[in-house]
Amino acid sequence: MRPLTGTRPKVMLPVAGKPILEHLLTECAAAGAGDFILVVGYHDEAVRNYFTDGSKWGVNIRYVIQRQPAGTADALRQSSHLLGTAFVLLNGDIMLKSVDIVPLISAETNLISIVELPNVEGKGVIETRGGQVVRLYEKCTNPPTRLANAGVYHFTGDILKFVQQTPISPRGEYEITDTVQALIDAGIPVGYRLVSTWSELSYPWDLLQANESALANCPPSVEGMIEPGATITGSVAIGDGSLIKAGSYITGPVKIGRNCVIGPNCHIRPATDIGDDCHIGSGVEIKNSIIMTGTRIPHLSYVGDSIIGQNCNLGAGTQIANLRLDKKTIAVNGINTGRQKLGGIFGDGVVTGINASINPGTMVGHRARIGPGAAAKGVLAPGATVY
C-alpha cells in the first residue's frame, strides 16, 4: 500500500469516507459482535485515537500491541490471554458484509472462510475433502485449487494450544496457516464456508474499486449549503459545514466530508470521495478518486482514477493522466494493476507547482515536491523533488 502507508497503518486508509477497519467493525457489530480486540503496532495511535473504547459504535474495544509485525499467529498469541473458548478472527484489510459474519459468530466448530477466485496467484489456498479442510498452502506457486483463504476464521479454544507451538516460517513470520495445519494434523476437524461479499485490499488501486462499490450504497444527504446555480444529480452526500458554490456540477455517487469548499465552476464525477476540510476550486475536474482530508486542488486541474493523500496541495493546472496512449493496462513498479485507467497515488503532504504533469500509474511518496512544469512518472521516494 505504499506510498499511502508511509504515515498511517493500512487499515486506516479511507473507503467512502471511513477507514477500512471501520467498515469491517460496523459489519461485525451488525452481525451481533459486541466485544473486539484490535491488535495494533505500526502507528497504533491512529487506530486508538479514532476508535477509543468503541462506545461510539456501541461495542467494547480492547487493544493488544504487536511491537513487530511477526504474522497473524503471533498476533493471536499476543491476544490469547483475552480470548474465550470461541472467537472470530479477521484480517483487518478486507471488506466483508454482515451476512457472511453471522454464520461464523453462531458456529460451534473451527471454520475457515474461503472464496473461489479465477486467479489465486499470491494468495493462501485451501484444499478440501469430504467437507473438511485437509491442507493450507501459503502463497504457493502451483496452487491445487482456486479456493482462496479469505482471512476470516471461527476458532474454538483448541487453537490456542497450537498457536503456542507454531514455528517461525521461511518468510520470518508465525503463520496462522501453519497453526491451523497443525490443528488438522492432530485430528481436530476444520470446516470451511464460502463467502459471497469478500474483497481484499492489497494494493492502492484496490481502494478505488472498493470505494466505488461502497459509494454505490451510500444514501444522499445534504448537511452543508448549496448555492443557487450549483447542479447536484444522483446520490450525493454533503457533510456539515461544507459549501457547494455556484457553477459546481456534481454527479453521484459522490461523498463530500465536513467543512469543504467546492467550486465555483468545478466538475465532480461519480465514485469520488472527498474528505473533510478540502478545497476543490474553479475549473477542477475529479472523477473516480479518493481525496483525503485537508487537501487543496484549487485551480484548473484534472484528477482521474487517483488517490491523493492528506494535506496535499496541487498547483494551478496540475494534470494527472489516467490513460496510456496505447490504452494498455497500467503497470506500477513491475506489477500489472489490471486497470486500463489509473492516475496518481500520492502520499500525504505532496505539493505540485503550476502546470505539473503526472503520468498514469505514478506513485508519489509523502512530502514529495513536483515543480512547476515538471513531469513525474514511475515511483517517487518520500521527500523527493522533481523539477
Rank of each mutant, 00 (worst) to 15 (best):
I20L: 12
A216I: 05
L215A: 09
S301Y: 02
E127P: 11
V180G: 08
I262N: 04
K18G: 01
V102A: 08
G84S: 10
Y192T: 07
I354R: 03
N149V: 12
G229S: 08
G361R: 01
L38E: 00
C218S: 13
K18H: 11
A182I: 04
G191M: 07
G122H: 10
C140W: 11
D53V: 06
L96Y: 10
T251N: 03
I335A: 09
F36V: 00
L201G: 06
E175H: 04
H366F: 15
F346Y: 10
T7M: 14
A29S: 09
R369G: 00
S301G: 10
R269Y: 01
G263W: 04
V115A: 10
C312Y: 14
I105E: 01
V102W: 00
L208G: 13
F87H: 02
T26E: 13
P170V: 07
D273V: 03
K161R: 14
L208Y: 11
I238E: 00
I176C: 00
M292N: 11
A210S: 14
N355E: 14
G343Y: 07
S199E: 15
I65S: 08
P19E: 05
L243F: 12
D277P: 01
R48K: 12
R339A: 11
G92V: 09
I20M: 09
R269S: 01
P143M: 03
G263H: 02
C140K: 10
T52L: 11
K123Y: 15
I20K: 02
F155Y: 09
G353R: 02
I238L: 05
Q78W: 07
P264Y: 00
T293R: 12
A214Q: 15
Y42E: 10
N322P: 14
E285W: 02
C260T: 09
P360N: 07
P204Q: 15
L215I: 13
G71Y: 02
F51N: 03
A368T: 05
L243T: 13
L215T: 11
V59L: 07
Q132C: 05
M292W: 02
Y302A: 08
P103W: 05
P118W: 00
D240K: 08
G334D: 04
P204A: 15
W205Y: 09
G304I: 06
P69Q: 03
A376F: 09
I345A: 01
T156K: 08
G41Y: 02
V115D: 01
C218M: 14
A230W: 05
G229E: 09
I297Q: 07
G157W: 07
V351H: 11
W57L: 08
M1H: 15
A374M: 03
Y137I: 08
P103C: 08
G283A: 08
R48C: 02
E22F: 03
P270E: 13
L25F: 00
Q310V: 07
C218F: 12
S98R: 13
R258C: 03
F51L: 09
N311C: 12
H43W: 12
K341Y: 12
S80T: 04
E116N: 14
G349Q: 13
Y63D: 06
I291R: 10
I61V: 12
